[in-house]
Amino acid sequence: MFTSVDDVSARLAETGYLASPAVATTVFLADRLGKPLLVEGPAGVGKTELAKAVAQVAQARLVRLQCYEGVDESRALYEWNHAKQLLRISAGRDETWDATRTDIFSEEFLLARPLLTAIRGDDPKVLLIDETDKADVEVEGLLLEVLSDFQVTVPELGTVTATRRPFVVLTSNATRELSEALRRRCLFLHIGFPEEELERRIVRMKVPGIDAALAESVVRVVGALRAMDLRKVPSVAETIDWARTLLALGADTLDEDIVRDTLGVLLKHQDDVLKAAAKLDLDAV
C-alpha cells in the first residue's frame, strides 16, 4: 500500500492527518508486516482519526466496531434476522421443514456485523475496532480468534475466510489493560501529545484563517497547561476547539481577558480552571 515511511506521511497529510514520525513508521510497518495496529493514548489525540485517514488513503471502506460495555457476539460478529426468518417460515407453508430450514439459515437471513463484514468480499477495507478497552474481557477472546486467522465460522453456513485481509486498527484509552495475548497479535503505537511544531501545523490545517502568531501562542499556552498537574489536561481536540473559538471571537492575539474568558474550552473541571488561572497569573476568574 505504501512505498516508504515518507510516502505514508505525505499521503496521510493529503487527507488532513498530520502524522508524527512514530505514527507514520508504525502505519508503514503494520501494512508491510500485515499485522493489526493497537493504538493507545489519551482522549482526543487522533486515534480514531488515524484509522479514518488510512481508509481514505487506501481508498478502502471503513468498517467500524464501536466497543462499549456489553457489546457481544451478535453485535460484533453476526446475527440471524429472526423476524425475517419467522416471516419466511409462515410464508412457506407447503414446504418440508428440511427445505425451510436450509433456506432460513442462508445468506439472505444473515445480518453481518463489523467483524464478519470486514473479512468478507474482495474490496479493500479498514477495520476500526474503536475503544477496545470499553468492551468486556470475553469480547477480547472473540477478537483474538478473528485477528489470528481472519476467519469466522458460522455453524449453519460454514467457515468464511478472508480472501483479502483488512487493515486493522484497534484503539484504546487504557482504562483497562488489554490482555497480553491480544497485545501480542498487534503492533503497538502510543500516541501522546504532539510536539509543539506538529501541533502548530495541525492547528493551522484544521483552523484555516488563523494567524500564524496566534497559532503559536495557542500551542504554547496548551503546552504550559499540559505541564501543570491538572485533573485533565487539554488534548489536541481541545487545542483545535480553542483556536476555533478564538477565531470566532475575532481575537488576533492572546491577552489576559480573552484567555480567562475562554479557559473553559480547554479545561473541563472547575478546579483545573482555578489552578491554571493562578499559575498563568490571571486575575480572579
Binding site: 515511511v5 514520525p21 512514530a22 513508521t25 508504525t26 510497518l29 503494520a30 508486516l33 493507545e40 493514548g41 487504557a174 489493560e177 497480553e180 497485545r183 501480542r184 503492533l187 503497538f188 503505537l189 502510543h190
Partner: peptide, 16 residues
Amino acid sequence: RELLREGLAATLLHTT
C-alpha cells in the same frame, strides 16, 4: 535511526 527506534518500539513493546 529515529525510524529504526520507532519500528523496534512498535514491534517489541506492548504497553506505554
